[in-house]
Write a protein that binds this DNA or RNA. Sequence first.
DNA 1: GTCCCGTTTTGCGCTATCGCAAACTATCGG
DNA 2: CCGATAGTTTGCGATAGCGCAAAACGGGAC
Lengths: 236, 236
Amino acid sequence: MAKVDTSLVAHLPLFAGVTPEALDEILREARSARYPKNSAIFEQGADAQSFFLLLHGHVRAAKTTPTGEQIVVRYVTPGETFGLAMAIGAARYPATAIAVDDSVVLIWPTSAWPRLVERFPSLAANTLQAVGTRLQESHTRILEMSTQQVEQRVAHALLRLAKQSGKKLDHGIEIDFPISRQDIAQMTGTTLHTVSRILSGWESQGLVESGRQRIILRDPHGIVVLAERSADSGAV
Amino acid sequence: MAKVDTSLVAHLPLFAGVTPEALDEILREARSARYPKNSAIFEQGADAQSFFLLLHGHVRAAKTTPTGEQIVVRYVTPGETFGLAMAIGAARYPATAIAVDDSVVLIWPTSAWPRLVERFPSLAANTLQAVGTRLQESHTRILEMSTQQVEQRVAHALLRLAKQSGKKLDHGIEIDFPISRQDIAQMTGTTLHTVSRILSGWESQGLVESGRQRIILRDPHGIVVLAERSADSGAV
DNA sequence: GTCCCGTTTTGCGCTATCGCAAACTATCGG
DNA sequence: CCGATAGTTTGCGATAGCGCAAAACGGGAC
């Protein structure tokens, strides 16, 4: 099995408080794999046989209803873990994970988790922290969906994406992976039509520049203003 | 300090894998307190000086926007922990906790957490599991808010409450603590007006019986049917 | 027993947003 | 270079649910 270079991952929060030797031992249990753009890493409902650490690329986690509607649960960025079904004692994945870009991941068998946690308790503590943060973010999302209009929610979503995966250009911030109107709709609880209308509007105001699966925030601050604007303050 | 009886809490999932002696040691660091109905246990934004385990009663965790709108994040039932800001590395509480009934809690100083986790790693693992489950539930809630109509969301919310805190009566299931239309609205992302209308409708169909801060599901199965009904299938 | 206050009910107009339909357009494979 | 395909734009009703307002109600405090 190809050995994984510890220096690539040693600095990750996940491994905070883990000695280099221990890290080496942890990595020895992992294998790495590459997933091409648009390929599925695991499917909702499938046996949770592995958990993952994203090294490179971007992964979209989406949850589907019995009737086929989807929401995007989150975008995974390099350095984050995903597919931790075992952390909640679930035997099956609660969502589907798709590589939105060519992606490289480390893969551990789920069965290794209890042993790893026992030998390296800080893994559990670090994971708890990560999951707690995500819970936090979930609550914020619920709060937004409950209290804000679609335009503000979209603004917040874009700002979050830009912060997480924004590439600074001289003329703005570009979201660093392919993302469609539909994806944004599924992040904000609306339809691709409404997202399209909103982005068209913003584009004509010079706030964004966008195209097929591509969005550049030309005026991030202007979008912050939109995001914070309370429902009434009228336009134009 | 009054000693807490270990037998009351030994069976909780939180303490799974913890020996009786260890449990004793953990409990020695806690104090207990009683909060009367409608009193605040902690406020959003306050210094997270303690974390809590609910022994008796019910606690509502709510998150407030800068503009004053609220959502109910969850209802805490006996045996669950809350106020675990430290788990996500936060120095302040992200929500407000209110006792909705006379409630009894165990209280640990936040500062004790790192030491407890180090000495008793299963605490971290168990907490991770609990937090993971809540993350899961959050995602389900987001999915519902994104894809279902208000009536279905209210149906789901009531069923969840009934499952969590339902008291079986011969003529139905009663939700075991005071809950207003407003509370349900804040759980489902709607207004108290709409909730009131929906409950009135259900009441006239014999599905529920309700009054001031009180709801009895007379026909739980009928409500399940409502909850699962897809958007189109019309009424009457 | 009576008063007061928080909760609930209900009516009515309004509008943000959906849903459907159709045209348009980049991008990629060949 | 060109056609096919997936993604995007836009128009036009339809409507679920909000927001406001006001009345009715129930329960506890004294």
